[in-house]
Simulated scan of single mutants.
Amino acid sequence: MNEAPETAQQPVVVKKYANRRLYNTESSSYITLDNLAEMVRKDRDFVVYDAKTGEDITRGVLTQIIVEEEGKGNALLPTNFLRQLIGIYGSNVPSLVPRYFEEAMANFARQQESVRETVSKTLGSFMPPGMEEVGRKNMAMMERALTLFSPFYREAGAKAGPDAPQDSQDEITALRAEVERLQHELATLHAKTK
């Protein structure tokens, strides 16, 4: 018996009403921009249509999500970059920019995955028996460190707030201490193997 090939998940259709409310037709419920941002982080595709005209307004809504994230203190876009981006709109190269950004983000994602794999392979070979749990904790910490460099990823449950910069600083300090501890352990293990 032939099985039908597995099809890609269809994008969620969201309708935006004149009162600025967003309606998720898949869940039959009203949602917020934060819900849409979470869908992006979970790689769930969606398309937003103006409920009255039927016009695809997805780009505008995605831009609005970025503006809100920037306003919450999650500033990822440097001021000079924003100025340069605005300057491009008045030039003759805007058609090249979207493709460039897509390629740059794809390369970034590949490099991030490569770092994860390298760290996993490197730390895995130095783990003595019984250290798997420590290894898992260290990998989880490395994962958190890598997310600091990913502009479109934030762990589920992580909340942005006025104390976010201090939390990030505390996490960086903790990561540095963990790296130093790991370096010391690796040096000790290396010395024992000689």
Rank of each mutant, 00 (worst) to 15 (best):
K159M: 06
V12C: 13
E38T: 11
E155G: 12
S91C: 09
S125W: 04
G124Y: 02
R41E: 10
G90S: 13
E155K: 05
K121V: 15
M141Q: 04
H190P: 10
Q10T: 14
S95F: 05
R116K: 05
S125Q: 15
A37G: 05
M131L: 12
L36W: 00
D45G: 11
Q64S: 12
D167Y: 05
K194C: 13
R59W: 05
Q112T: 15
K15I: 05
Q183P: 02
T122D: 14
N2V: 09
L189F: 05
M105E: 14
K192N: 15
P94S: 12
E155T: 12
Q166A: 15
K121F: 08
V13A: 10
T63H: 09
E68T: 03
V179Q: 01
N74E: 12
A106G: 09
N107T: 09
D163C: 08
T79W: 08
A4M: 09
E26W: 02
N107Q: 12
K192C: 09
N138R: 03
V14I: 07
A18E: 13
L146M: 10
E132M: 04
E185D: 14
V119C: 08
E6S: 11
E178S: 14
F46Y: 11
G124L: 06
V61M: 05
F108R: 02
K137V: 15
L182C: 10
L148R: 04
M139D: 03
A187C: 14
N19D: 15
E70L: 08
